[in-house]
Design a protein around this nucleic acid. Sequence first.
DNA 1: GTACAATGATACAATTAGTACAATCAGGAT
DNA 2: ATCCTGATTGTACTAATTGTATCATTGTAC
Lengths: 142, 142
Amino acid sequence: MTEKKLTLRLDFHSGLPIYTQIVNQIQSQLANGRLKPGDQLPTVRALAQELRVNFNTVARAYRILDEARIISTQQGRGTYITEIPPPNISEKLRNESLEALTQRFINEAFRLGFFEKEISQMVRDSLKVRKEAQNKQKENAK
Amino acid sequence: MTEKKLTLRLDFHSGLPIYTQIVNQIQSQLANGRLKPGDQLPTVRALAQELRVNFNTVARAYRILDEARIISTQQGRGTYITEIPPPNISEKLRNESLEALTQRFINEAFRLGFFEKEISQMVRDSLKVRKEAQNKQKENAK
DNA sequence: GTACAATGATACAATTAGTACAATCAGGAT
DNA sequence: ATCCTGATTGTACTAATTGTATCATTGTAC
């Protein structure tokens, strides 16, 4: 029915545990609207098969999300996105989510052979460019 | 999966430490294409058994290669050749690749509702933590 | 014989997989 | 309706497989 395909892409060499990758990707799909409150997630077994992973690994990811009240897992029924979720996600969780995202980015950059200086410089530049673009938008809006 | 046989030939009388020989041979197999980025190496125990050597000796070799960013060892999962940009890609291309990665990261962070200050602060913190962890590793390695 | 580097032994931690179980629901038989 | 039965769901606990940390032993150079 309301079952989503939920196409996740795992990187088995990234250094991030699989269950963490699943948690992160579901969170971001919720953030960007690909998943909405009330949506049913695939069953632990279905998602596990699709990702070629043991279903307990998926169950672990679901448990973490459940404890964060982002999803609601119900034995014998299935797993659903919580109806009234992230507005009340705590500051701690919010911070952890950014931290995880940043870790992923930095690990990837190092894995690709970049150095600390290059990375921080590029982040500064990119943020600056983005900011300028926004300012320009505002000026035009006048 | 993509596990290679990785036939190494040790010389126990050469005077070169075993772990050094392992390091050298893996490096040269990477250089001549027998090993490619993304390949999974044998587990420390498997390779140790094959070479009739203690697995800590293999682990030591792996640690050296890991610190040199040639391989990536992941507790509970295995050891992989890191995916580095081909050495022949131009500086420009290299830069663009980091830029693209950074853009993705920043876009994602903004989508998740974080602000510029939070993002740059988190990047600084994460880089700092990583640096300190590495320094600690080096000290221990002495 | 002392010092130091190399190797080995042992115990540990993180991640993922295996197995058995419990809750829920759908369908039919009575 | 009520009860069974089987399928499907998530849960709990355990085992297996991985790399890590620490200290002991060995062997060689001085």
